[in-house]
Each structure stands twice: as C-alpha cells, then as structure tokens.
C-alpha cells in the first residue's frame, strides 16, 4: 500500500516536472515564432527604413523634420476663386520644400566618386 502510494506520488511528481518543461519549452517556441513573424513584418513592410533608432542612424535622427510644421488645407467650406488662390499659394509653399533640391542622385555612388574607377588611359 505504501509502495503504491509512493509510486503514485513519484509518478505525479514526474508528470508535474514534465508539464513544467513542456510549458516553458512551448512558451519559448511560441515567443520565437512571434518574434520571427514580427521581424519579418518589420523588414518587409518598410518600417525598418523609417526607423532611425537602428545602429548607425542615431547620429542623423536630429535631421528628421517634425510633421506638425506642414500646413493643412481646410477640408470644409465654400469653394470660390479666393479658396482656389489660397490652395494654390499653400500648395506652392509646401511643394517647393521637396521639389527644390535634387535627392538620391546616383552620381554619389559613381565609381570615380568612390575612387574605384578605372584609371584614365595614359599614352
């Protein structure tokens, strides 16, 4: 009787330990899967390109402009000549900030700019 009780207790103990191991293991696996999914989404959605907290980008974080400085056009109200003129003025003001200068010119990656171009032929 005592041996049986001891065996049952031992069995319960082992079963409890196995459940803990299973619980911890499955928690780790689930966490790994979720982290992998979120990292894949982070990389594929384009969020990574907007994230300047990435290593190597902290120094340029201050160059990001605040979106609150952008003036909005009122979404409601009458439409007359004055309204259109107001829109045109606002549009020009906001648009010239992005159209004024050339961005992403490929010449900065030119082989001569980087100093890896073929040397000029000498005669």
């Amino acid at each position: 009787m005592t041996e049986d009780a001891t065996a049952v207790t031992e069995h319960k103990k082992h079963w409890f330990q196995a459940r803990i191991v299973l619980f911890v293991g499955s928690s780790i696996v689930i966490a790994l899967v979720l982290v992998s999914v979120s990292m894949a989404l982070y990389a594929s959605s384009g969020a990574a390109q907007l994230d300047l907290s990435r290593p190597g980008f902290q120094a340029v974080q201050s160059q990001v402009e605040r979106s609150s400085t952008f003036k909005s056009f009122p979404a409601s109200g009458k439409v007359d000549n004055e309204t259109i003129e107001q829109f045109k003025a606002l549009y020009e003001e906001q648009v010239k900030q992005v159209t004024a200068n050339d961005a992403f010119n490929p010449s900065v990656l030119d082989e001569h700019t980087l100093g890896i171009g073929a040397p000029a032929a000498t005669e």
Binding site: L50, L52, F57, A59, V64, E65, F70, Q94, V98
Partner: peptide, 21 residues
C-alpha cells in the same frame, strides 16, 4: 546614414501633400 533622414522627410512630405492638401 545621410539618406535615411532624407527618405523619412521626403516620405512624410509626399504623404502630407496627398493627405493634407
């Protein structure tokens, strides 16, 4: 590194032109 803030600013500005104007 220099391209990143240019992209963030441009992306934001282009979206705002669409959304706010």
């Amino acid at each position: 590194a220099n391209d990143a803030p240019v992209y963030v600013n441009r992306n934001q500005a282009y979206f705002s032109i669409s959304d706010k104007l």
